[in-house]
Design a protein around this nucleic acid. Structure first.
Lengths: 205, 205
DNA sequence: CATATTTTTGCCCAAAGTGCAAAAATGCTC
DNA sequence: GAGCATTTTTGCACTTTGGGCAAAAATATG
């Protein structure tokens, strides 16, 4: 619950969230074609019509579950606590740590696996990444006070999130803390991937 | 028409293409909520049921129009004609020139503008970029013969296409050859953007 | 507590999505 | 090019979805 919102908006958020949770769970258990919107609303305890007020399809509801709930206060905090000599890359790195928690990555893997099974989901998982990228763009813009006008922030934010896309189709197999390499052959730890990414960014390709 | 395909597959491609053209044109003229699937199939000269064989919704049909028709022969050509001392960045640059023709950019701008007006389209325009990115990933992988195992190709391909995303919401205003800066205030030529992008890639951020 | 605003809901109907089987088109072989 | 096998298109029937509208419920304001 975000206390910055009015009670009304808190309830709206809660409703959307309940619907998205129900949709994601049903998708995991039954597959995208194993449930209908009526099932979602039954599980979330709202009317069929209300679902349509929030989402235009099941896929959108599932994706909503992944739309970042990092508040703008979190971002304010982040910017305030950076070292005085921090670079834009440092700011970006901090944000990535905030966004890609182990828990988020764990669920994202489930979502990605669903999306590979049900192509109708693919466009919607991309929109999750887009949302994250826009937040990064915003943070970079604030951090640099609009100092760069040549697309630097666009490019930097784009680079990082673009590089995550291979997670989606399993070409990049992320190993989470607590998992062993034997369980997931060919996997790379997220931190390791992130670090090699930032090496390239710092030093050029 | 791709002569590598059987006649059957050529016809299938033609059908999908006709449907996508009709969908895109109707969307431009009437807006996404100003036409229905029946209108599309009437214009394309196929049955309602056939539409469903190809696409799961209007949005998908519109996006199909932008799915790159650069063949794998084009990519073979590209790889064959690179200078002997070409770097992966050079290969990527050539591919971008192949994918982002002026004509493609011109249409993409129309699509982006539609997607801003009709949020239901947004996920689908992202999938167009994803398709382009996957082609680049493929080319880089072939060019480097799998020499890099640390995510270099993923990261590089991701960087470039990620950086294009701001085109989508109009934050990055692309000026095409033949247009004047006065017509599109705040615009940047695509080539210019591409070059500054590659400067960063070469030299680090 | 009374009133204004916003959200939820039910009702209704147009539109969309899909399994199935017949019909049409295509590919292949002789 | 005639005949047979394979694939695609189509029509039909039916469930599911999407969204306008107005009444009802919930929330905000003062």
């Amino acid at each position: 619950m975000n206390p910055k919102l009015t009670l009304r908006d808190q309830k709206k958020e809660a409703t959307a969230y309940a619907l998205s949770v129900a949709a994601f769970e049903l998708a995991l258990v039954h597959g995208m074609d194993g449930f209908i919107v009526d099932d979602v609303v039954r599980q979330a305890g709202v009317s069929r019509r209300t679902f349509a007020n929030y989402f235009s399809c099941k896929e959108e509801a599932v994706a909503e579950y992944f739309m970042n709930r990092a508040t703008s206060e979190d971002e304010n905090d982040l910017l305030a606590h950076l070292a005085p000599d921090a670079t834009p890359l440092d700011a970006l790195y901090s944000l990535l740590k905030l966004q890609f928690t182990s828990e988020f990555l764990r669920r994202l893997r489930q979502f990605a696996s669903l999306a590979n099974q049900y192509p109708s989901l693919e466009p919607y998982i991309l929109s999750v990444f887009r949302r994250l990228q826009m937040a990064a763009q915003e943070v970079l813009e604030r951090f640099t006070h609009g100092r760069y006008t040549d697309g630097y922030t666009h490019l930097l934010a784009g680079a990082v999130y673009g590089a995550f896309v291979p997670i989606l189709d399993g070409r990049l197999n992320v190993l989470l803390p607590g998992e062993s390499q034997e369980d997931r052959p060919g996997s790379v730890s997220f931190d390791q991937y992130l670090n090699s990414m930032f090496d390239y960014l710092r030093n050029g390709f």
